[in-house]
């Protein structure tokens, strides 16, 4: 119990020092921004437009990736490309020339 009060005091002093330092730091940053920093610049709409126009392909990719992410249609780890099979199967055409498979029964 003897150590309890000093411990509480130590905690309060420690926290006070930390918060005090943070407040001072915040004030310094605000002052620097006011006197030295130029602050956020207004964007040049023309420049943005030009950039968007020259990077059209990238934009498509970004949009496709975003859509893919949300629709879960991204290329999976095991990718299977679409394939097409011949409509005319030689198997089907020659099937009647062979012998039917005879089932073996016990």
């Amino acid at each position: 119990m003897d150590a309890f009060i000093p411990a509480i005091l130590l905690t309060i002093i420690g926290m006070g020092v930390v918060f005090g330092s943070l407040i001072v730091l915040m004030a310094v940053i605000l002052l620097l921004e006011k006197f030295v920093g130029s602050g956020p610049q207004e964007a040049d709409p023309g420049a943005v437009e030009q950039e968007a126009a020259t990077k059209g392909d990238d934009m498509e990719l970004v949009l496709a990736a975003a859509a893919g992410y949300f629709l879960e249609t991204e290329r999976p780890e095991v990718y299977v490309p679409p394939v097409r099979r011949g409509a005319d199967s030689l198997w089907a055409r020659t099937a009647r020339q062979g012998h039917p498979i005879q089932r073996r029964r016990p």
Binding site: V78, Y79, P81, V83, R84, R85, G86, S89, L90, W91
Partner: peptide
């Protein structure tokens, strides 16, 4: 993926991509 490379049988041609 493996099946996408293979024909259905020994008489058919493999599928094209």
């Amino acid at each position: 993926k493996l099946l996408s490379f293979l024909p259905s049988n020994n008489l058919d041609d493999p599928p094209l991509a």
